[in-house]
Nucleic acid binder design. Structure first.
Lengths: 252, 252
DNA sequence: GAGGCGACTTAACCCAGGTTAGGCGAGCGT
DNA sequence: ACGCTCGCCTAACCTGGGTTAAGTCGCCTC
């Protein structure tokens, strides 16, 4: 493993530990499964559509997105990734499914050999359970995006996305005073929300005007999460987190 | 198991056998895991949001949908289910995630106790692999719906949905002469596609006018799958099927 | 420090699809 | 045979968000 000391994989551990109960020993063992820690610059691809899935790839630092391109050139971003997120779950079924992952900012990425992970799961079944839970949460997030795209208007969509990101960042201990780092451009947001970048701009301005949101230089600030959540029709429990009564994991 | 003779669970077996290679013995064993076969009338709920997931619920006959309701009353259909489909994958992670499943027509449903299934997977690991594959396909379908909602216009969306359904029905041997049964109303289609029922109507008429599609009394006919697919920006391989070189499974 | 590029902003115009409000026919219960 | 409900269809009108086009600002490179 390279430079484990420079970049902490803590968000990853926090992510999984927030889904299943894990003992100290298990967390340590899990940590040692990480075999490589790479960096990518903004806009670089982290995973290609057709890449074999012999590694579990985990985002450790920075922002990234999953997306797919249509034959007509349009792009749909299907997920934003925050530190601790697993980039792609195809290793669970050893299939290859068509979507790529790209960095939105400079990122650090950890890679875990699937074989080693599966082997370790024999001794620690909690590892596989954690992955399946993470995958289920991922599904829930996708489902909620579908609802955004189908039923929410522009203002609600943007508000919803920000609430979702805030919750996910908070879970891994990366929200401070209502602020967190998130590197998508307005065009990226448009490709994720099914809006033009022009309209994303109009919408963000409206949210700023209402003193709900601040956004600049890759830092998002939510001034009033409650009002924003109401506006967004945001229901945290629908994301599959904390339904088990388990909130953000305390980092000791 | 009740009245196994009246309703064939063949679509279910075809579905899984189309994802992983299974021997005759395994298919037989799988069949014997089915412990109950129930019927529901149209509009009845098959699964509630909060239901415990101690059964794997499989649609055997008829049409159904997964959906979630927003606090403002609007409804987003997140998936249509065709015979052979697993209604809900939450049993994989033993979490409860908020969506319901409802019948669109009279349906038959099989139930497999999760415990028995997991136990059987010890002897036949292919069972669990099949479930994970089915879940991955389910993800791919959801992803493609997100792309529809975000990037395709009304005509493309409707066309896409019909192509997808045709493919899925064909996989389980339920397409004859380009026709298959599908019971959603135009309002249902609207709730799935993020369109008003009025506009779904306009759009279907346009597809009929172009001699691409026929639809009446719960029977869909595609007159020209190729043209329709082109119009829809439909890329079958993106659904995760047949990427492994495996097309619709021959039923011997 | 000139030039270029990428992200954000603004404004004018326009259209795809929503909304509202009906009408029509088939099935069904009484 | 009546009336009800439900699904389908039509038409008139309206608006949320798309499109195009241009301008600003900061940052990076040479």
């Amino acid at each position: 493993m390279t430079d484990r000391n420079l970049v902490s994989i803590r968000p990853f551990l926090a992510n999984l530990a927030g889904l299943v109960r894990m003992r100290e020993e298990e967390l340590t063992h899990l940590m040692h499964l990480v075999k490589a820690l790479n960096r990518h610059t903004a806009h670089q691809h982290i995973l290609e559509e057709e890449a074999p899935s012999d590694r579990i790839v985990v985002l450790i630092q920075g922002s990234a997105c999953r997306f797919r391109r249509l034959p007509n050139g349009r792009r749909q971003i299907t997920a934003f990734l925050v530190p601790g997120d697993i980039c792609d779950y195809r290793f669970l079924s050893s299939g290859t499914v068509g979507q790529s992952v790209a960095a939105l900012s400079p990122v650090a990425v950890a890679r875990i050999p699937v074989e080693a992970f599966v082997a370790a799961s024999e001794t620690y079944p909690v590892f596989m359970r954690a992955m399946l839970s993470a995958s289920a949460v991922n599904d829930a997030i996708m489902r909620e995006w579908m609802i955004s795209l189908g039923q929410r208007n522009a203002l609600e969509r943007v508000a919803y996305l920000l609430c979702e990101l805030e919750l996910r960042m908070r879970r891994v201990g990366l929200v401070e005073d209502g602020s967190f780092s998130f590197a998508a451009t307005q065009a990226d947001l448009g490709d994720a929300l099914g809006l033009s970048s022009v309209h994303v701009n109009r919408t963000l301005q409206e949210l700023r005007r209402r003193h709900l949101v601040g956004m600049s230089k890759g830092v998002v600030t939510l001034y009033d999460v409650d009002s924003l959540g109401r506006l967004a029709l945001f229901e945290p429990h629908s994301l599959g987190y904390d339904r088990a009564g388990r909130a953000a994991v305390p980092m000791h």
